[in-house]
């Protein structure tokens, strides 16, 4: 097994607010990890520390076996933007609000990373872009503008844009939370396909059924710590912690019955 990501005592503070209070986590190549937790529990911040959208306040991040940042004075680790830029290129991220570039066509959106960041020749970028657009089933929309696509299609383009960098890890930050319910499925299918192909995934989601299906491990975060961790059937079906149980109860409060109710006479 190859270790892709290791977090050691990861701490993140925003001014006085400590959002992450010491996270330890190791992710192997090909693993799919789902992060659950109430809003404010720190799951998005954790994700954003992995690709250094946020710079950690303490602890250490190891990516692909290499520690990130340089040892500074004492315990402090210094991060220079120059070191972080190439790391971000190797970790893909998909956002809640897609964040496609509205001034570029779908194809140009997907070509942009390989072209500007990797500096690949235009023809190669286009071939790559078409390959990943086909993969998310949107090759036929290559020349469309993002504003002409449905939310689900936009998010699939955003996934293709991240994949075109051929990253080693993909991060999904509530990728379906902004979508109309009927569009959620197509995006989840796309993510599941990546998981089945052996991509290493870290997923923040509120879709418990999806988490159950796709995850190798589920982590439940509370107040900046990993409160509970295990296989999906353990954490989702037989949670040990009171907080996990109440979180899951909150999500499952209203369910459709398994069989249609008899019509009232």
């Amino acid at each position: 097994m190859t270790e892709m990501l290791r977090l050691e005592g990861l701490v993140k503070r925003f001014d006085d607010l400590e959002v992450l209070k010491g996270i330890d986590l190791t992710v192997q190549k090909g693993e799919t990890i789902v992060l659950l937790g109430a809003s404010g529990s720190g799951k998005s911040t954790l994700l954003r520390c992995v690709n250094f959208m946020e710079v950690p306040s303490g602890g250490r991040v190891h990516l692909m076996g290499e520690p990130v940042g340089r040892d500074g004075r004492g315990a402090a680790i210094s991060y220079s933007e120059r070191d972080l830029v190439p790391i971000r290129a190797r970790v893909g991220m998909v956002f809640q609000h897609f964040n496609l570039f509205p001034h570029m066509t779908v194809l140009q959106n997907v070509m942009e990373g390989p072209r500007t960041v990797l500096g690949l020749p235009r023809s190669e970028c286009e071939a790559r872009a078409r390959k990943y657009l086909d993969k998310v089933g949107l090759g036929w929309k290559a020349d469309a503008w993002p504003s002409h696509l449905s939310g689900g299609q936009q998010q699939r383009v955003a996934i293709a844009r991240a994949l075109a960098m051929e990253p080693e890890i993909m991060l999904f930050d509530e990728a379906t939370s902004a979508l109309d319910p009927e569009l959620v499925g197509e995006v989840l299918d796309t993510i599941k396909e990546l998981a089945d192909e052996g991509m290493t995934l870290l997923i923040v989601t509120h879709e418990l059924g999806f988490a159950y299906t796709v995850a190798d491990r589920v982590l439940f975060l509370s107040a900046g710590r990993i409160l509970e961790e295990g296989r999906p059937e353990e954490v989702l079906l037989a949670p040990r912690e009171e907080q996990t149980q109440s979180f899951l109860r909150g999500h499952g409060r209203f369910r459709l019955p398994e069989t249609p109710a008899q019509e009232q006479a």
Binding site: R88, P102, H103, T116
Partner: peptide, 26 residues
């Protein structure tokens, strides 16, 4: 929107690339 800077940053763009490729054209 801030998300535009973030999208460029997450792809691995430098600050200058985010500005010239993503922000200024819009």
């Amino acid at each position: 929107a801030k998300g535009q800077w973030e999208a460029g940053k997450a792809l691995g763009m430098t600050g200058k690339q985010q500005l010239t490729r993503v922000i200024l054209p819009q």
